[in-house]
Amino acid sequence: MTRKDEKPILEGIASGDSTVLKAFYQRNLGGIQHHVLQNSGHTEDAEDVFQDALVFLYQKLQEDSFEIQCSIHTYFYAICKNIWRNRLRKKYRIVSREALLETEDVLTPTVLESLQEQERKQLFQAYFFKLTIKCREILALVFEGKSMREISKITRFSEGYARKKKFDCKKKLLEMLESSPSYQELKNASSK
C-alpha cells in the first residue's frame, strides 16, 4: 500500500510534473550522493544513478499493477543502491561490504529483474543525450518510424539535408556506443 501522503508525489512523477520532480530531486539527491561517494563512486556517478533510477521509477509508475509497500523515498533509495551495486560489480568485480547490503526486502524479484534489463536502455539513452539537439530531433523522428518526407516537413529541412543529417547523427551514435566499455560488457554478457 502506498502511503496516502505520498500519493501526490507518485502522481507527480508519473505525470512528469516539474515542481514535484524538482522537490523530489532536492529531497533525495544528497542521500544518494552520500551512498555512492561512500562506496567508491564520484559525484558524477551519483548523478547518473539518480537519473537512471528516476527514469526507472517513472516507467514502473506507468504500469497499472505496480505497487509500493513502503515510503517512496525508501523505495527510490533501494533502486539507486541496486543500480550502483550492479555498476560496481561490473567495474571492479568486487563490491564493498556496505554496498553489498541487499535491498531485496524492498524490491520484488520482478523489479530486480527489470532493473537488470534496464541497463541497456539507460546506456542507449545516455549516449543519445550526448548528441546535439538537432541530431536528437531528427533521430527521435526516425525512431518514431517517420519517413524522410515527413521528417523534412516537420523539421523544415530539405529532404536531402535531413537524410544526410540523419545518417551522420545515427552513425555517430552507433560509434559512440560501440566504443563504450559498458556496451561491450553488455554485449559480452548477452552472448554468454
Binding site: 542507449f124 527521435a140 525512431f143
Partner: peptide, 9 residues
C-alpha cells in the same frame, strides 16, 4: 535495438 529502445518517445 536502437529503434526499439529509442523509439520510446
Amino acid at each position: 535495438e536502437l529503434h526499439e529502445i529509442l523509439g520510446d518517445k
